[in-house]
């Protein structure tokens, strides 16, 4: 079997909290001894309530958050051992899409600048034709190159954010609530786009969401987090058909279905 794209072993993250006079700093254990792997081409959905540690865990995958203990191996390399240059190389391979596209795109840069900067930052030249092809791969036409973020809608901006993530042909995309800020009708477009990328380009995904229905539709495997730990993990179909852990069951039961009540 080929090496997994991401393998986390017994990873923990403790955030320091402000200690008062005479009070001991205990810190907040956001992630508590988690092990997780994502195979090549696999989409893993990470669900949990707010504060369960899912975003912290996702950010440890590409070194944005440094774990307090445990090892993170991305694409076979131990992230903790990487030099600055090594981290930079890692991040070509592991891209990220955030929840709020307006907040994650520079308001003073056109779409062209935003995309070209990705290549530039990694010492690569790029051409207009390449940028146009990139935009087309996310369903936008060449017009968008000249636009600023405020001149596009939320869905279009999230497409730009996905294009930016795709620019350097990553093996893994970490998507943290990529559709939570979007309108229902637009959310479906972006979810379909991400699903196509996984299928057609074999990109692996770590998809973080609080929305079980989104995860259900989209992931091969699901991990459920509660208070910093993964309490249940398994193939998507199984988890939703017969959730075992009480936390998963509570989430499944509480998710309102767009169906007539029986």
């Amino acid at each position: 079997m080929s090496e997994p794209i991401l393998e986390m072993t017994n990873v923990s993250k403790r955030y320091r909290t402000a200690g008062g006079f005479g009070r001991r700093r205990k810190g907040f254990l956001a992630v508590d001894g988690v092990s997780l792997r994502i195979g090549r081409g696999e989409a893993l959905g990470l669900v949990g309530e707010s504060g369960s540690g899912k975003s912290t865990l996702a950010r440890m995958a590409n070194g944005l958050v440094v774990p307090t203990s445990g090892t993170v191996r991305t694409d076979g390399q131990d992230v903790a051992c990487l030099s600055r240059r090594g981290l930079r190389r890692l991040r070509r391979n592991v891209a990220m899409v955030f929840q709020d596209p307006l907040a994650s795109l520079n308001p003073r840069q056109t779409v062209r600048q935003t995309l070209a900067n990705v290549f530039h930052a990694h010492g690569e030249a790029t051409s207009t034709a390449e940028l146009v092809a990139l935009l087309e791969s996310v369903g936008l036409d060449a017009d968008y190159l000249g636009r600023y973020p405020h001149e596009a809608s939320g869905g279009q901006l999230q497409r730009v954010a996905v294009a930016r993530a795709l620019a350097l042909k990553p093996d893994l995309i970490i998507a943290d609530e990529p559709t939570s800020a979007l309108d229902v009708s637009v959310r479906a477009q972006i979810l379909n786009l991400l699903a196509d990328l996984q299928r057609d380009q074999g990109i692996s995904f770590l998809h973080v969401s609080h929305d079980l229905a989104v995860i259900r539709l989209y992931s091969d495997r699901v991990a459920v987090m509660q208070r910093g730990r993964i309490v249940e993990t398994g193939p998507s179909d199984e988890i939703f058909r017969s959730p075992q852990h009480s936390c998963t069951r509570a989430l499944v039961e509480a998710t309102p279905e767009a169906e007539l009540p029986a």
């Binding site: 009708s185 637009v186 379909n192 699903a195 279905e257 767009a258 169906e259």
Partner: peptide, 26 residues
């Protein structure tokens, strides 16, 4: 149709169901 459902069924090929998105933006 654009709302993801928890009971989304797998179609016969074992592929995941695609959402029926509305093109464009509100």
């Amino acid at each position: 149709a654009a709302t993801p459902r928890l009971d989304a069924r797998l179609d016969s090929g074992g592929k995941r169901t695609r959402l029926r998105a509305i093109p464009g933006a509100p």
